[in-house]
Structure formats: structure tokens, C-alpha cells
């Protein structure tokens, strides 16, 4: 679902670019809160904020958990990159590949997952010409924000009522379906194609691709848990 340049109106693409930057800043702050702890000095003084305002330093350091979490983000990002290369054939001369939003979010939480997928999408666009440059923000919104953040909250809502694996699978399928819906609307707003044709075409193909997304996500979550001893972020 990587949009190339030319499909999306430049104004719309710029708007999505700003939105993506906003989401990235928000996500970095969220993750930063999770991976830092007050430095011993700041904690003893109980003046973390004062230290920051006077010295310009945060009065915080990366926690042991934080160091491991950042390495985990790298591992998950690398896994998603590799898995995205695996295009599987579906009906009638089409293929699909994993987006990996729910995979990353189940292992890292919504915002860590968002940053892991964002890194993949950026590296693909910059080094592999896979996905356009002007539409980088649009692709980040479609795949990282919808994939990981929407995907995560769908998963966490479903798992209260459903078995774990079913919740993961349904969230993965929904994230692909919603990303396809968003992509169709973007194409329509850009004047690239009429919504009446592009929407059913995109949704029908991605309803099938979503089934593979669900199966691959479930498998890779289980494998990651088994190999690394990770738990789902609940």
C-alpha cells in the first residue's frame, strides 16, 4: 500500500506531511516518558523540573528498561522490514504484503509501534524508492498511524471480550481495511480517481490481503514471544 508520488495532490500530501511530523513528535514524547527515569540527583532532590529549567538538561536518564525497549524497537522494526518484503500472491494476478502495524503495536504499544513502522516506511522511501517522497507523510499516516495506533486500540478493545489471538487477528485485518479505505479517500480527494470505482476495488483486494496480514501477525507475535520472551503490551 505504498503510495508513489503523483497519486496524491501536493497540497493534500503537504497537509499529511505536517500531520505525520506532529504524530512523530507526539510519539517521541510518549516513548521518552516511558524510557527515562529521573537521575539519582534529581530524584533525591525531588526537583527534576527545576533542574531542567535551570541547567537546560532533563534531569533524566535512560532507564535500564528504556535501553532494552529502544533495542526492542529496532528488532521489531527490522522484523517488519524483512516481513514486508514477502509479497504473497492473492487472486487474479495481485499480491499483497504485510503492513505490520498491529505486529509492532502488540509488541511495543501504540506509539513505540508507530515509530517502528515510521522508521520502516522512511527507510523504504529514502533508500529503496518504495513509496514516494512527497507522500512520505501520507504513507506514514496510512501505514504507521492507522496500522499501529488504530490497530493497537482495536486490539486492546477486542481482547477484553475475545481470545488473545482472535483479537490480534481481527485488529490486523481491520487496520489493513481501514488503511485501504483511507487510501481510497485520499485518491478521491486528490482527483486521481472517482470514489465509486476506487473504493470497492481497494476494499475488495485488501479484504483478502487483510486475512494474510492477520495470519502473519499472529504467527510472528507468537514466534517473537517464544524466541525473545516478550509479552504483549496490554
Amino acid at each position: 500500500m505504498h503510495l508513489p508520488d503523483g497519486f496524491i495532490n501536493p497540497n493534500l500530501a503537504s497537509g499529511f506531511g505536517f500531520a505525520a511530523v506532529g504524530a512523530i513528535v507526539f510519539a517521541i514524547n510518549k516513548v521518552k516518558q516511558a524510557v527515562t527515569e529521573p537521575t539519582a540527583q534529581a530524584a533525591l532532590a525531588g526537583v527534576g523540573n527545576t533542574v531542567r529549567s535551570i541547567s537546560g538538561k532533563a534531569g533524566k536518564s535512560l532507564s535500564r528498561f528504556g535501553q532494552e525497549y529502544l533495542v526492542k524497537m529496532g528488532l521489531v522494526s527490522a522484523l517488519v522490514f524483512a516481513a514486508q518484503m514477502f509479497n504473497f500472491p492473492i487472486a487474479s494476478g495481485t499480491s499483497g504484503h504485510l503492513i505490520g502495524g498491529v505486529l509492532a503495536a502488540v509488541l511495543l504499544g501504540p506509539w513505540g509501534g508507530f515509530l517502528a513502522i515510521t522508521a520502516v516506511v522512511m527507510i523504504q522511501a529514502l533508500f529503496y524508492a518504495d513509496g514516494g517522497l512527497l507522500v512520505l507523510g501520507t504513507n506514514i499516516i496510512n501505514m504507521a498511524l492507522i496500522g499501529a495506533v488504530f490497530g493497537y486500540y482495536t486490539y486492546s478493545g477486542l481482547r477484553k471480550k475475545l481470545p488473545e489471538l482472535l483479537a490480534i487477528g481481527l485488529a490486523a485485518w481491520s487496520s489493513v481495511f481501514l488503511a485501504a479505505l483511507a487510501c481510497s479517500i485520499e485518491l478521491w480527494f486528490s482527483g486521481t480517481y472517482a470514489i465509486a470505482q476506487v473504493l470497492p476495488a481497494m476494499l475488495s483486494v485488501h479484504a483478502v490481503i487483510g486475512i494474510a496480514e492477520a495470519l502473519i501477525t499472529i504467527t510472528l507475535v507468537q514466534v517473537s514471544k517464544a524466541v525473545m520472551g516478550w509479552e504483549e503490551v496490554k
Binding site: 500500500m1 503510495l3 509479497n87
Partner: peptide, 9 residues
Amino acid sequence: LASAFPDGL
């Protein structure tokens, strides 16, 4: 092994 068919989009 990856399929060379065009992706969904």
C-alpha cells in the same frame, strides 16, 4: 520466493 505480481494498490 516473493510474488512479482503488483501489490493491491
